[in-house]
Computed example of a mutant assay.
Amino acid sequence: MGGEADHTRLDLEVIRGMGTGLSTIKKAFDGLEKLGDKYEDDFGDGDLAEKFGDFASNWEISREKLTGEVDALAQIAKAAAKAYEDIDHQLAEAIRGAQDPKKGRK
């Protein structure tokens, strides 16, 4: 049976990479043109133009929500990687301090 270390092992590069990748996706969404502005005139007048307008409007609202959620996940992943890295450094320092009896005496 595995020890406690099996449950706390993290790949910080994967977590950090996830944050970077999600930020890239957010930037791509931010750079998309509004569909209605780009193709509005191509549909002319009538039902098809109205349906496309509805679709473009709904897509814009959904894209904004999705962009916000992707950005939030990116920030969480980056913060998690930083927090785990800080904890790892603090634990390493504590272990080094415990192993070096000279450090404890001043």
Rank of each mutant, 00 (worst) to 15 (best):
R9F: 15
R9H: 14
L10T: 15
L12E: 10
L12P: 02
V14L: 14
V14Y: 14
I15Q: 01
R16M: 10
R16A: 13
G17I: 11
M18E: 12
G19A: 10
T20Y: 12
T20D: 15
G21N: 10
L22R: 00
L22K: 00
S23C: 07
S23I: 03
T24I: 09
I25H: 03
K26V: 04
K26R: 12
K26N: 05
A28E: 10
A28I: 09
A28K: 07
F29T: 03
F29P: 00
D30Y: 03
D30T: 03
G31L: 03
G31W: 03
G31Q: 05
L32I: 08
K34P: 05
L35D: 02
L35V: 03
G36Y: 01
G36R: 01
G36C: 03
G36W: 02
D37S: 07
K38S: 11
K38C: 07
Y39G: 00
Y39S: 01
E40W: 06
E40P: 00
F43D: 00
G44C: 04
G44Q: 05
D45H: 11
D45C: 05
D47F: 09
D47Q: 14
D47L: 11
D47W: 08
D47Y: 13
A49I: 02
E50S: 08
K51S: 11
K51D: 11
K51Y: 06
F52L: 04
F52Q: 02
G53F: 06
G53P: 00
G53C: 07
G53K: 07
D54E: 15
F55A: 11
F55I: 12
A56V: 05
S57E: 15
S57K: 14
N58P: 03
N58Y: 13
N58R: 15
N58M: 15
N58Q: 15
W59Q: 07
I61K: 14
R63I: 08
K65S: 13
K65M: 13
K65L: 14
L66D: 10
L66R: 03
T67S: 15
T67W: 10
G68Y: 10
E69D: 10
V70M: 01
V70D: 00
D71M: 06
D71I: 02
A72K: 10
A72I: 06
L73E: 05
I76D: 08
I76C: 04
I76Y: 08
A77G: 02
A77Y: 01
K78A: 09
K78V: 08
K78H: 12
A79C: 08
A79K: 13
A80P: 09
A80E: 11
A81N: 04
A81L: 02
A81W: 00
A81D: 02
A83F: 13
A83M: 09
Y84Q: 02
Y84S: 05
Y84L: 04
Y84R: 01
E85A: 08
D86T: 11
